[in-house]
Amino acid sequence: MKKLAVVGLVSAALFGAATYSIAVQRDSDSALLREARKYFQPLPKEIPAPPDNPTTKEKVELGKMLYYDPRLSLSGVISCNTCHNLATYGVDNIETSLGHDFKTGGKNAPTVLNAGFQIAQFWDGRAKDLEEQAKGPILNPVEMAMPSPELVVERLKSIDEYVKAFKKAFPQDKDPVTYDNVAKAIAAFERTLVTPSRFDEFLRGNTKALTQKEKEGLKLFMEKGCVACHNGVDVGGNMFQKFGIYKPYPYQDPNDLGRYNVTKNEADKYVYKVPSLRNVTRTYPYFHDGKVWDLREAVKIMGETQLGITLTEEEIDKIVAFLDSLTGRIPENALKLPVLPPSSPNTPKPQK
């Protein structure tokens, strides 16, 4: 009997300790969630559209076709998806993208996923929204190299199925096949490219969505000050910041002046848009120049250049683990290749 009593007491003690441990963990998780909600918001289902370009099914379908169509380039080889490959999380995973005639630009291609949540487009913020951004690469001689909007429109108007699709997408327009509407349709499609992740589940109250290591990484991410710039619904993308506050960025090209090229303000030299960290484990290489391929190195550099701190290897491990929780689900429909309409005998031919 005495033995049974002792066993009973030990079992009760262990059960009590386990219950206490669970309660402590629950309280700790709740505190972490409350703190995280001060800095972050979960992704909505869709990126809000501007009043002059409401998102419609017809516009999204047309925009998807245009996004994947290489005929928007002079050579007929390069599409939006070439540099912003949706199968690889909206990037091309190289330092700087290959464009027309094998030219390369000076910046790493940022992901198109969730991009519409951001304050502006491009690393220097020269485009105010997705519509303005969509117009840039098509006419850029280093990228898709179309010589004029008129040639873009001429190609599209020569393809009957595109003419019909533009009429469906822009029924109020007398002449719907315009360069402005090309940009509006692509932007409408891009506003559907939202990638919810386990971190969003956590922010909505499911504290089991993150592993213990990821939670520790999130705690460090907030405590170390990363959230000063990487916050909000997109975990970044909502401000501009000088790269090299406490220490120069080791790979900085002195001729790349960042936002200064747009504003001509001395204070904007080496200032860039803070990138979103969503899907960051998939969108290597990192930074505006694509010089860093290892996320661990990128985190280390950020600690030194932006926060003035040296992170330990263990801290870097935990922060990288948290960043992986930001890897989201790409919409299935976006990954299904559209069947593009055939050219006609009158379609302007590809050029070198």
Rank of each mutant, 00 (worst) to 15 (best):
L66F: 00
D52I: 05
K57I: 07
T192R: 06
Y39C: 00
C226Q: 04
G217N: 07
V182P: 04
S11E: 02
L33D: 10
F322V: 04
G308W: 06
Y89Q: 08
E266D: 15
L130W: 02
T263I: 10
E297Q: 15
P348K: 11
L74D: 10
A87C: 02
D69C: 09
D29P: 03
N346E: 14
G236Y: 05
N333T: 12
E201I: 02
A13Q: 02
A169C: 13
N140D: 15
G225E: 09
K64M: 00
L295W: 03
I245V: 14
L335R: 04
K215H: 04
R34I: 12
K2W: 09
V292D: 06
V142K: 14
G303R: 07
D324W: 06
R259V: 07
T211N: 01
S97C: 04
G8T: 06
K45D: 09
M239W: 01
S197R: 05
P250E: 12
Y68K: 03
P285D: 07
Y89W: 11
L62S: 11
T104N: 12
M146P: 03
L220R: 06
R191I: 04
K164W: 07
P176M: 07
F40N: 07
K291N: 12
R126P: 05
P51I: 06
P54I: 05
P137K: 10
G90N: 05
P149T: 13
A127M: 14
V182Y: 01
V320L: 09
P141N: 12
K3W: 08
L14Y: 04
A185S: 13
D92G: 00
E150Y: 11
E313P: 06
P350Q: 01
L218N: 07
V299P: 01
L113W: 05
T207I: 03
P54S: 06
T96K: 13
Y89K: 04
L340H: 06
V182M: 03
I159K: 04
N279R: 00
L33Q: 13
P141M: 09
N333C: 00
H288Y: 11
D29G: 06
D175K: 09
P331C: 08
V194H: 07
E297L: 10
P250R: 11
L257R: 02
G303S: 08
T195R: 09
P137C: 09
E214T: 02
G237N: 00
G205M: 02
L98I: 14
V91D: 01
I245Y: 02
I22E: 14
R126T: 09
D294T: 10
R296I: 01
F170T: 05
L72S: 11
H230G: 00
F117E: 12
A12S: 12
K135M: 13
S11M: 13
L14D: 01
R296G: 14
